[in-house]
Design a protein around this nucleic acid. Structure first.
Length: 271
DNA sequence: TTCATTTGACCCTG
DNA sequence: CAGGGTCAAATGAA
């Protein structure tokens, strides 16, 4: 095809355009001072562009087309840690979503999760597993969860949900929520409890506090209520619907109530 | 061959 | 610097 010189020219041009795009996205992010959705989108754009630049730089140095031979070379460089692009757009727990922790007998909740990591946690008997929604990439679903067996009971999972599913449809909606042994409430949620991480307005779902969004954790909320009540029959389940101790001081009819509304409003209150 | 999980390294926050 | 969250290559299962 073209000469080496021509190849370099289009690479330069491409790089120029990518840099321009990167700058524009950066400016856009500043302008937006945006909500999570837009910010994450801009992040993705920035990340993609930065990665492209890294690749382009690598390719450019070799000034050769991307043949298998060259790919192997890059792979080798990576192995030797000579060519390791810094993770761009890497943001930990940057999402402003709420966290909810429950205890459940199973880590199955009907959603499709992809495990992306596991860590031994300091002082904990069991490792913590990290899951994200399988639709993170194709639908941009930001929901993640952490699953860890409790120290005192191997059969009970402490599951922390972060973010909500934005991928929900008939194919992904769970048939039934997890069998919940018990769930807690930190009534300090929104009151700045010192133990709560700043970056995560942790809201621990309570059997007493259904007004907090339980639907994202247990889309089949009534099933959750029944199992929770069965597991802890000392709870006055009916009282939860009258509870005024929750962060959302409101009454509702569980038959007709729209949990999505609660969640959305809940976010406003929480954040 | 494809896809999910494992695992070690990277990176951020306190 | 330690601890923990995330990434992505390696590996294994279907």
């Amino acid at each position: 095809m073209g000469s080496k010189e021509e190849g370099n020219r289009w690479q330069m041009k491409l790089k120029e355009e990518l840099i321009k795009t990167q700058q524009l996205a950066t400016r856009l992010m500043e302008v937006l001072q945006s909500g999570p959705g837009e910010e994450s989108l801009v992040d993705q754009v920035l990340s993609a562009v930065s990665k492209a630049l890294v690749i382009l730089d690598a390719e450019g140095k070799a000034a050769a087309p991307l043949g298998d031979e060259y790919r192997t070379e890059i792979s080798d460089l990576k192995k030797k840690k000579i060519l390791l692009p810094r993770r761009v757009g890497y943001r930990r727990r940057a999402h402003p979503y709420t966290c909810r922790t429950i205890l459940a007998e199973t880590n199955e909740d009907g959603y499709a999760w992809r495990k992306y990591g596991q860590k031994d946690i300091h002082g904990a008997a069991h490792p913590r597993s990290y899951y994200r929604c399988i639709h993170k990439h194709d639908r941009g679903c930001q929901a993640t969860r952490q699953v860890q067996k409790t120290d005192d009971d191997d059969s009970v999972f402490a599951i922390t949900y972060m973010g909500e599913h934005t991928c929900a449809d008939a194919a992904t909606l769970p048939v039934q929520g997890p069998r919940c042994v018990i769930s807690f409430e930190s009534n300090a949620a929104g009151q700045g409890a010192p133990s709560l991480k700043k970056e995560c307005d942790e809201e621990v779902v309570s059997s007493h506090s259904p007004a907090a969004d339980s639907s994202s954790v247990f889309p089949d909320f009534s099933a959750f209520m029944v199992s929770a009540a069965a597991a802890a029959d000392q709870y006055d389940v009916t009282s939860v619907f009258r509870s005024s101790t929750s962060s959302l001081d409101m009454e509702f009819d569980p038959e007709t109530f729209n949990f999505d509304d609660v969640f959305n409003r809940g976010d406003e209150y929480i954040s």
